[in-house]
């Protein structure tokens, strides 16, 4: 007994650095039988379909396209086929251009430093772009956003930083322990996840707030 498999679905494709990308699919019912999945893709200007080059690197139910298999500004038509002993079922086509699915990894090495000078006291934040992102050559341009709140507080204050990887924060309360995170995106892509949290305890004696 058993049934042919249900129709699978491509659910998402993502590129972390506009050089490679991964697509994921969601299996449907397997009809009670062992079912395997084959992903096919066809690139704009190509006549024939190719099979997924790497089913492993992206984890379960995924296909990873390395640099050699990745073209930007090119529409990929992607489908996945579920097959068992009683038949097969193919997903609807999923169209994707890698230029528009870039979601970088979070920034790294976020450091917080309290600067106490005669003319100014402020919190200096520094971070680095995600290691995979090639910003040095100009291939990827990232903009950043940070958020900060008192450790015990509920409300985050979100600040759009723009292209830089450092920021000076002036309007903080003395004696408070703050938590900070930063994230990034390409000029028209998705925001990354927030970075891991960094904490700093500000000294008590200074007075900044008017």
């Amino acid at each position: 007994n058993g049934q042919p498999p249900g129709k699978p679905e491509i659910i998402r494709c993502r590129s972390p650095e506009k050089e490679t990308f991964t697509c994921w699919w969601k299996p449907s019912s397997d009809g009670g039988l062992p079912t395997n999945y084959t992903l096919f893709y066809k690139k704009e200007r190509e006549k024939s379909y190719n099979e997924c080059p790497d089913y492993k690197s992206g984890g379960p139910n995924s296909c990873y396209f390395d640099q050699k298999h990745t073209s930007i500004w090119t529409i990929y038509n992607v489908t996945v086929k579920a097959t068992n002993d009683l038949g097969s079922n193919t997903s609807a086509p999923y169209y994707v251009d890698v230029a528009y699915i870039v979601e970088p990894d979070p920034p790294v090495n976020l450091t917080l430093e309290w600067v106490d000078q005669a003319y100014a006291k402020y919190l200096l934040l520094n971070w680095a772009s995600p290691p995979l992102a090639d910003v040095r050559s100009g291939w990827l341009t990232l903009e950043y956003e940070l958020r900060i709140k008192p450790e015990e507080g509920q409300e985050w204050e979100i600040i759009f930083v723009g292209l830089g990887t450092k920021y000076q924060l002036f309007s903080l309360n003395s004696g408070v322990k703050y938590v900070v995170q930063v994230r990034c995106r390409t000029d028209n892509g998705e925001w990354s996840q927030w970075s891991s949290e960094s904490y700093i305890q500000l000294p008590k004696e200074f007075r900044l707030k008017d």
């Binding site: 200007r45 640099q67 073209s71 930007i72 500004w73 038509n77 169209y95 090639d134 050559s137």
Partner: peptide, 24 residues
């Protein structure tokens, strides 16, 4: 529309770099 928009830009006859390696 996206399915029909494949390979239909008037500039597709221009040879342009399509990945980082070509562009660099």
């Amino acid at each position: 529309f996206i399915a029909k928009a494949i390979n239909s830009c008037h500039t597709s006859t221009l040879t342009t770099p399509e990945d980082k390696e070509q562009a660099q």
